[in-house]
Amino acid sequence: MPTPNSAVMDFLLTRRSRPAKTLVAPYPTREDLTDILTAAARTPDHGKLEPWRFIVMGKEALARVAGEIATQGPKLGYDADAIAKQTSTYENAGLAVVVVSAPVDSPKVPQIEQIYSAGAACLALVNAALASGWGANWLSGWPSHDPDICTRGFGLNPGEKIAGIIHLGTERAAPPERPRPDLDQITTWDGV
């Protein structure tokens, strides 16, 4: 029989993302982030390709993204409310880690598996931050899919995409629990 790690399992069964708008200072330091990013980089990575990278963005960088959203939103046809909502997310944030999906050419590992690995890095980063006592939230939204905002605001290179933007900080208030999936509705048992 395996030896369970009850503390980790209890954490995973009760983990809860913190809404980004409730995350305030103090924010993780570079030293704090080094451990969190190290844990996130241990995500499954078929072929050891490291098809993702991290961009740590502070207040100034996030304000730059907000400016790009305000400029680009009308060109993309978004209404004032949609632009204001996304702009305020970045204007009010103090720290975020952008997980960039950066697939590489590989004859053995399909690109989709590399993209999944970037998603796994997002969840690993959220869980590492939460386990370290910080509040964390994985967001994306239309600005993270616009090529101009990705290039000018986030600093992505050609061929890269944003897998997720992880907002980090100190939680102002614990969020209420939310309904979770009904396992009977989402699980098929086949021969077990």
Rank of each mutant, 00 (worst) to 15 (best):
A66E: 06
S117P: 12
A82Q: 15
P143E: 08
G135R: 12
I162M: 01
R53Q: 10
G159L: 03
S106E: 08
E171S: 14
S132L: 08
F11H: 09
T3H: 14
V192L: 15
G58N: 04
Y27Q: 02
G159P: 06
W142I: 03
D184E: 14
G153W: 02
P158L: 03
I162Y: 00
P103W: 11
G119F: 03
Q114D: 01
T89Y: 08
R178Y: 06
L139K: 10
F154W: 10
A39R: 15
A63P: 02
P74G: 09
A124I: 02
D190I: 15
M57D: 08
W142P: 00
Y78L: 05
V98L: 04
G141C: 08
H46K: 02
P103M: 10
D35Y: 11
E91V: 07
A120K: 01
I186S: 02
S17T: 13
T38R: 15
G133P: 02
V97D: 10
V104A: 09
A93C: 06
K85R: 14
K75E: 12
P107S: 05
Q114T: 10
V109N: 09
P26I: 09
V65S: 00
R42Y: 10
W52G: 04
P74L: 00
D32E: 09
G153C: 05
V8E: 10
P51L: 04
L33N: 05
F154I: 10
V65Q: 02
L130P: 08
L125Y: 05
A82F: 08
A41D: 10
E160T: 07
K48I: 07
A120M: 01
Q86T: 08
A93H: 03
H167W: 05
A173D: 14
L130Q: 07
G73E: 00
A63N: 12
E177Q: 08
V8H: 12
L49S: 04
L123W: 15
A136P: 08
L12V: 06
D10I: 05
D79P: 12
Q86N: 14
V65R: 01
P143M: 07
T151S: 15
L123C: 13
V109C: 04
Q185W: 10
C122N: 06
P26M: 01
A39E: 14
V56R: 05
I162K: 04
H145R: 13
N137S: 14
A173S: 15
T3K: 14
K75T: 02
T71S: 11
I69A: 07
A128I: 05
E113Q: 13
D148Y: 11
K85H: 07
V126N: 09
V97T: 11
I69S: 05
E160C: 03
S6G: 13
D10W: 06
S144I: 04
K108T: 04
D10V: 06
D45C: 13
S101G: 01
R15T: 00
Y78C: 06
I166V: 11
I162G: 04
P147M: 09
A121S: 02
E160W: 03
